[in-house]
Design a protein around this nucleic acid. Structure first.
Lengths: 144, 144
DNA sequence: GCAGTCGCAACGTTAATTGTTACGACAGTT
DNA sequence: AACTGTCGTAACAATTAACGTTGCGACTGC
């Protein structure tokens, strides 16, 4: 599958903001987060923009601008983040329509659709079991 | 995520071969399967080659050549197919190493690694619950 | 007015999958 | 022995999504 790192980077950004706020700061800038994640500030702003649309973070503009959490890390799950930053379904169908004159070509898509939906539902349950507070705790628990 | 359709096409091919064999035929050609899936025979041969390496299908060469199942559809699960055709993990880490001097940058990868492993294990359990015989039954159950 | 940061568009870069062509290898048939 | 049909595989183009980068206007506090 070789998936994308959007979920990882988004979790990284949220954990970073959360820790920064615990240290008493009001807002974090996209440049600070980008430095930690070793990427470009625009990449962070794009991802955080999607998280803002989902109601997970807020942003200020002007001097002293930056990002802050809109909710507690304890009330945010990886499912919230996943749904905010991952557009499509986990598994894709055929790129072109299969032969509708063939029994298999006709029935394969509804069949796989039903199967995939059940699997994605299970995936969502798993993602919902992990909060961003869990993530930050695990981050800080890494041995040095 | 907009994943790839490798798992879908591989399941399509296996269901097609299984049904064809139920109808009394010995082997199926990549061209027949490609016509049903509306793609190129080489794409099918590549995927079936990976399934052969996993012991799910066999191939003959020469005149009257083609593909046949190496096991019953009942004993094949989507997990077998998934592991045969999907190379990498479901979720990716950062493309570049995060800032190891930052607490979050240092701990984020082992933290997410542990979380992702648990989720992928659940995904595997779900995939293992569905046999290719289930898939073919669902395919044939599609209303016309 | 100035400075710092977001918001966003535009474009280039990279990587994976998919599609296509080509051709040799193989095994039956004639 | 030549012929035919199909696999096996390499090579390359086409497509797509994610990622990276630059640029610049908008906003806000000083």
């Amino acid at each position: 599958m070789s998936a994308n790192s959007r979920l990882t980077i988004a979790a990284h950004a949220l954990a970073w903001i959360g820790l920064y706020q615990r240290q008493g700061h009001e807002v974090a800038t996209s440049e600070q987060i980008a430095t930690s994640a070793n990427t470009n500030p625009v990449v962070i702003r794009r991802l955080l923009g999607e998280l803002r649309r989902a109601g997970l973070v807020e942003s200020r503009r002007g001097v002293g601008a930056g990002w802050s959490l809109a909710r507690e890390l304890e009330s945010m799950t990886l499912l919230d983040v996943y749904e905010a930053v991952e557009p499509g379904p986990l598994f894709a169908m055929h790129r072109t329509t299969p032969d509708q004159g063939c029994v298999v070509g006709y029935g394969i898509r509804p069949a796989m659709q039903g199967i995939y939906e059940g699997i994605e539902e299970t995936l969502r349950h798993e993602l919902a079991r992990v909060t961003l507070a869990d993530v930050l705790r695990d981050v800080l628990a890494a041995p040095r």
